[in-house]
Simulated scan of single mutants.
Amino acid sequence: MTATKIFNHADEGTWTGTPDGNRRRVLLHTDELMLVEFAFEKGGIGALHSHPHVQASYVAEGRFEVTIDGKTEVLEQGSSYIVPSNLVHGVKALEAGRLVDTFTPHRADFLD
């Protein structure tokens, strides 16, 4: 599979509701890499979960309590974290905010 596109503009992409009540939009993807934006209201939870994909995340806006493999830290705008394959992780939005996540390989379950 090749990327359906190689550039994404701020107003592009369709927001989709997530099972835990937040929103996400896939920005770009190839077989090897995916870029996804998540939006949270204050108090929003990204439930604890794990997956085989390696994930790197950037806090684009807001403050989040981030838990990875039982360790929790509060991260604010401009901070980032990485989740190695199969580690249990999740977030809580301490204020409304956005995360920009990358996954390798891509998350097929996020595609229509």
Rank of each mutant, 00 (worst) to 15 (best):
I45R: 05
T72G: 07
M34A: 03
Y58Q: 06
G97V: 03
H51L: 12
W15G: 01
V91K: 04
F38N: 04
H89G: 07
S80H: 13
D20V: 03
V74Q: 13
G97C: 08
E32V: 04
G43P: 09
H106G: 06
E61S: 08
A108W: 08
K5P: 01
W15S: 06
F110R: 05
G78Q: 06
F38T: 06
T104M: 14
E41Y: 03
F110D: 05
V54K: 04
T18L: 14
A60D: 13
E12T: 01
R24Q: 04
Y58K: 02
K71L: 07
L94C: 11
H51D: 12
H9A: 08
H51I: 05
V91I: 10
H29A: 00
A56I: 13
T2M: 11
Q77M: 12
E61M: 02
E32I: 01
N8F: 14
K71G: 02
N86W: 02
T30Q: 00
T72Y: 08
D101L: 11
A96Y: 04
V74R: 12
R107F: 09
D31C: 00
E32S: 14
V66H: 00
T14S: 02
R24S: 03
E65C: 05
I6Q: 15
W15L: 14
T16A: 01
D112P: 15
E41P: 00
K92S: 09
F38G: 05
W15Y: 14
I6K: 08
V74W: 11
F64Y: 03
W15N: 09
L48I: 13
P84M: 05
V54L: 11
V66S: 06
H29V: 07
F64T: 06
N22S: 02
R25K: 15
G70V: 12
H49W: 14
V100S: 00
I45W: 00
L28V: 11
R63D: 07
H51M: 12
V54N: 02
